[in-house]
Amino acid sequence: MPSYAMLIDAAKCTGCGACRVACQMQWQLPPERFYNRLEFREKGQYPKVKQEIFPVQCMHCDNPPCQEVCPTHATYKTADGIVHVNPKKCIGCKMCMMACPYDVRQTNEKGIVEKCRFCDDYIAKGEQPPCVTTCMNTVRVFGDLDDPNSELRRLLDEKQVFTLLPHKGTKPRIFYVSK
């Protein structure tokens, strides 16, 4: 069984937003709904100012608070590391949206909660998620944590990485390359 994760090298991100649009096309989302987003931050003081960009999406945490609070087990985590939402069980209480510290869950037109699912149908066929393939600078690297030959594993072993909000104890599966 693979163990999926993602590495994001935010320093390479140009902020073009193609990842967001590719995801919206993949899941046929209206413009106001999205499963990934870019967070822009300014660093330093004039004249030495720099903009940093952080692509953010569901972190597929190993200790997901969204799963813990869901009353019907609509949110669940599979052995491959992906956190899913079963729309047939979701009551739309939005408790998971309140519990997620990353603000990556949204409701659809039926009030059912949705989010990034690492394009599970797609990767089952050996493809990569569109947010990965569409990026011109290879900001995202997706792969199997347990595969010693995967590029993801190699990069994680080589580079210094960090996760977002580590003090929340969620153990995210999305890693960021330290600058």
């Binding site: 019907t72 609509a74 047939k88 979701c90 009551i91 739309g92 409701t107 039926k110 009030g111 059912i112």
Partner: peptide
């Protein structure tokens, strides 16, 4: 609640 019938799954 948008999907009250799904409460059955509780």
């Amino acid at each position: 609640t948008p999907q009250p019938l799904h409460m059955l799954y509780m």
